[in-house]
Nucleic acid binder design. Structure first.
Lengths: 214, 214
DNA sequence: AATTACAAAGTGGTCAGACCACTCATAACT
DNA sequence: AGTTATGAGTGGTCTGACCACTTTGTAATT
């Protein structure tokens, strides 16, 4: 029936072209985009159409606009994608569970990757890391982020970042004493490449924080 | 400096009011929203402002618009989280290696999930599955997709789908004879919940296809 | 010469009105 | 009754006009 039901949405096209433009002109985080009027002319569409695309990206937190100044490429930490979806619609239990599961999968994989890599687990970072955990107050989120960063998979990192916002959960809390000792062991396991041990310690940690909260 | 930098964005306000309106009027999935012109009048703003808000929601997949008909509340499952991830975030992290690693992490996690769930690995599906592998030609991609579907994590499934496209890889090929025997063992391991065994067989399979191709 | 004050240009924010393309229900016609 | 034509309603797009704000350049003042 709807064979050629393909009246491509203009503003979606503009979004694509914007991405392309950003890539071509090598606009980096914080950089300035052309003005709405200029974009309209360059892309051969009306200004209102450009605005529809820009507003979409702004709602997502991908760009930032300042009246009188211009439009700027936003920091990736400001992406509001997940946040928005969660407040608007995605509140089903199943979905939240999915997010947790998926995020943990990424975390485990990071641990796995580091354990397998002689280059990574031999880094001098780890001892300093352990000291920091012992001596300072440290947020759960920070330690995991660090691990994923070290695992050197930027894609995973980005996805993890987005998923993290979703739960808004106990990741913001400080490591408690029990957790610290688990993490010390975990990091030691990572250093010596004992994946099995590391993963089971990680699971142990999950149990710990799930028992404490919620 | 920017203490009260709070010149609330109009279209963001409209987004909020729209959500409120949807709640008040009890508009359900698939239901029709008021027309743009009516919304403009009711919310006391210009039509273009209403459109900026609507377009934002549409980009997220929260609503659906059909020319000549109207604007409709979209199905939950059409949200575009992952698609947007691909267009804006994945471009930078295009290291193919990252894509592979992340995708495999999701695959392993699916196997893990199924192994741990007595409900899932007890399904009657598995035997039929094995037969199919033995008797028919089957594409690599199909078997993995099936497993992720069974693991019942929609988010993972979406992300996996996306990554799959980006890889453009050997997943389209048929299972070769050696692979088939590995998979039979793998499925058996899953059935009996032997996670260790299943994962190591999965890794074995990865070696197999990486030796053959590329 | 240095500083200040002011005007102009540039930018995003918003609105109103005008078409267009499309869908659908209904009236008019055969 | 069946078909066709019409018109109202809707989203899609463009144009031009203001407004509020920031930046910048320049002229006036010191």
């Amino acid at each position: 029936m709807n064979s050629t039901n393909n009246p491509k949405k203009m503003f979606v096209e503009i979004v694509k072209q914007l991405r392309q433009l950003i890539a071509e002109e090598n606009i980096t985080v914080g950089g300035k985009l052309p003005s709405e009027r200029e974009l309209a002319e360059r892309l051969q569409v009306g200004r209102s159409t450009v605005r529809e695309a820009l507003r979409s990206l702004e709602l997502l937190g991908l760009i930032e606009t300042r009246r009188g100044e211009g439009t700027f490429l936003s920091d990736y930490r400001k992406h509001r994608l997940v946040e928005l979806l969660s407040t608007f619609i995605l509140t089903e239990a199943q979905s939240k569970e999915d997010v947790h599961t998926t995020r943990q999968a990424l975390e485990k994989d990071a641990i796995h990757t580091i354990c397998m890599s002689e280059r990574l687990n031999a880094l001098h970072i780890w001892d300093a890391f352990k000291e920091k955990i012992i001596e300072e107050e440290i947020i759960r989120e920070d330690i995991i982020r660090e691990i994923i960063i070290i695992s050197d998979n930027r894609l995973s990192l980005k996805i993890w970042f987005l998923l993290k916002q979703f739960a808004g959960e106990p990741y913001q809390e400080n490591l408690k004493l029990e957790e610290k000792s688990v993490w010390i062991l975990l990091l030691t396991a990572i250093q010596s490449g004992e994946e099995q041990q590391a993963i089971s310690l990680y699971n142990e940690w999950l149990l710990l924080i799930n028992r404490g909260d919620v």
